[in-house]
Amino acid sequence: MQNPYVPAPVEVIKIVTEVDTKDIKTFRFAFLNEEDEAAFQYLPGQFGELSIFGKGESPIGIASSPTQKGYIEFTVQRAGVVTSALHDMEVGAVMGVRGPLGNSWPIDYLAGKDIVIVGGGFAFTTLRSLINYMIHPDNRSRFGKITVIYGARNPGLLIYKDELEAWGKRDDINLNVTVDKGDATWKGREGFVPTVCKEVAPSSENAVTVICGPPIMIRFTLPVFFELGFSKENIITSLEMRMKCGIGKCGRCNVGEKYVCKDGPVFSLAELDKLTKEY
């Protein structure tokens, strides 16, 4: 019997500090055992338990795309015991990853449709995974138009800056990056994400929107998409809850009868409507 509580050992092979405040970093891990790497078959939207012996575990969305071979990436904010220990690590350190856990963005459902990605702040990690997955040459033809609306409070808090620049140069992504308030060097768009969504006004015809961000952003963005004609089935998001086991046993991440760890974290708005409002 495979033991789902045992993490696969990984080595930290790259660390990127994403933001000016230095409290959000992207960690790239390489598996130490080939069989663990082969077993870690994931899709965008899934998560892993980052496991540091002596500190504990933290459930974090996978930021890399399965089309990126040889490593996995997680973008992590320094917050509690485990993420602080992770932030103190250097390249070459060895730790563990359990997973992949949870469901994923509904790739088969997204296929053949226009995709509108809406992200806010640091909640852009599994969306980045999805974007990189969709624009991979093997997959790009499976998806229609890709529109990305991504915002942060200020330019220094945008993550994946190099990729944003690269995506901006492509003609098969309609990329809209915005900040609440720019600074002296900022030449891009200013404005809150819901406002920008209204301005960009993506068509809801054969389209799905995938939204991740702080609750306040989601609250004001949803009405915009309802107005654009998106049905609740075609608005998809990802939930967060406190987790321990990640496999539906330890009993704390349930929303109604569903466990966010194994039945989620990805739900459509139509699915969330059927659940209790306790998250």
Binding site: G54, K55, G56, C245, C250, G251, R252
Partner: peptide, 24 residues
């Protein structure tokens, strides 16, 4: 009732990951 917590305990150079009963 079966809810549990998972935590780590270290003494000098050796440690264990344990689960303990938790409660809603």
């Amino acid at each position: 009732c079966h809810c549990f917590d998972i935590s780590d305990e270290v003494k000098r150079n050796d440690g264990i990951r344990i689960r303990n009963w938790d409660s809603c």
